[in-house]
């Protein structure tokens, strides 16, 4: 056998203590004592018997325990089925393990190892076969064939990628716009109730949505529903907060975006898009429950803590001729998580 085929064994001479060899096999009580053996046999059979019993009890419970009954605050049926099945399985398991430990022969066996590699002969045989194959194909002598084949295989990858094109539409400018537009009423998110400035106390936060989510067409069908509703909601959800007008420090150009200290901000976190809802009225801080980005709503929604990289977009507000809060335009910047071409 060749050199590499032998395992590297440390030289015996440098070992401070020689390997004393396998210890002698000691018999277990069940090997020498017929009473112990019988007892173990009975134990194993009892466990198997118990398992069958539990399996049957589980089936009984399936029919006997009411679907809607409760037990310790949990579903009674669930508790009964889980316990029954669990005990049936555990008994089989315990029986098998007990059998193997107490009654099956426990003589240790020695098996020799062999290196993972093939022998030198096997290797040269394989290499020879491979080279003969290469030689017969003539691929080395005909680079034209080889290269054109590689090119063809590579080109086949293109349809594989192109065919995936219809996984979804292109983003276009969808991420830059929401359904908000001039004159759209800001309404309560629960019932679509319109909101007058006087409905809001100082310090109050209201979860709000554009009124179009609650509008129906002439046939009584919602204007926006289903998937589209979820998609628009994921961008257009807002919060209204009312603060002391003196506390608010609007950026230039935003001075008239509020109504009597009522400001409207996107509810969608600029970090990775969770809806934000935890409002501290004393500090005017809004905290995102997902990764705790904190925004100062008195200061234009600026990030004051956490992993978000951008302020919360603000929706400019006004009051319409009936006295309800309305948007004066769409958001002036994309809402939600950042993306490359967002600017």
């Amino acid at each position: 056998m060749s050199d590499h085929h032998d395992l590297v064994v440390p030289e015996a001479t440098e070992e401070p203590i020689a390997n004393p060899g396998l210890p002698e096999h000691l018999p277990r009580p069940t090997d020498v004592d017929p009473v112990a053996e019988k007892r173990a046999e009975r134990q194993v059979a009892t466990l198997f018997g118990l398992s069958a019993l539990f399996a049957i009890l589980t089936c009984v419970a399936y029919f006997a325990v009411g679907k809607y009954d409760a037990f310790l605050g949990l579903g009674a049926s669930n508790v009964a089925l889980g316990s029954g099945l669990g005990l049936a399985l555990l008994s089989i398991g315990a029986g098998l393990i007990q059998w193997s430990r107490k009654l099956m022969s426990d003589h240790e066996i020695v098996e020799m190892r062999h290196p993972a590699s093939s022998s030198e002969e096997e290797r040269s045989e394989a290499v020879a076969a491979f080279e003969q194959g290469l030689e017969d194909s003539g691929i080395a002598r005909r680079p034209l064939i080889r290269n054109s084949l590689l090119g063809a295989m590579g080109a086949l990858g293109l349809p594989a990628i192109v065919f995936l094109r219809d996984l979804g539409p292109l983003p276009g400018d969808k991420l830059q716009h929401t359904v908000w537009k001039k004159g759209m009423r800001v309404v309560q998110d629960v019932d679509g109730a319109r909101i007058r400035p006087s409905d809001m106390q100082i310090g109050q936060l209201v979860n709000a949505e554009p009124e179009v989510f609650f509008e129906t067409n002439s046939e009584g069908e919602p204007v926006i529903e289903g998937t589209e509703l979820l998609q628009e909601k994921a961008k257009a959800a807002v919060i209204l907060v009312r603060m002391h007008p003196d506390d608010i420090k609007p950026w230039k150009g935003r001075e008239n975006w509020g109504v009597d200290g009522i400001l409207c901000f996107s509810k969608i976190c600029t970090h990775v898009g969770c809806p934000i809802s935890l409002w501290e009225q004393q500090t005017h801080h809004l905290l995102c429950p997902c990764h705790q980005s904190t925004f100062d709503l008195a200061d234009n929604g600026k990030v004051i803590f956490g992993p978000a990289g951008r302020h919360l977009p603000q929706l400019p507000l006004a009051v319409d001729d009936q006295g309800y809060l309305v948007a004066t335009s769409d958001f002036t910047e994309p809402v939600g998580p950042s993306y490359w071409e967002r600017g």
Binding site: V9, N19, G21, L22, V110, M112
Partner: peptide, 8 residues
Amino acid sequence: PGRTENNV
């Protein structure tokens, strides 16, 4: 004891 790199 008895266990080496060459056996199991």
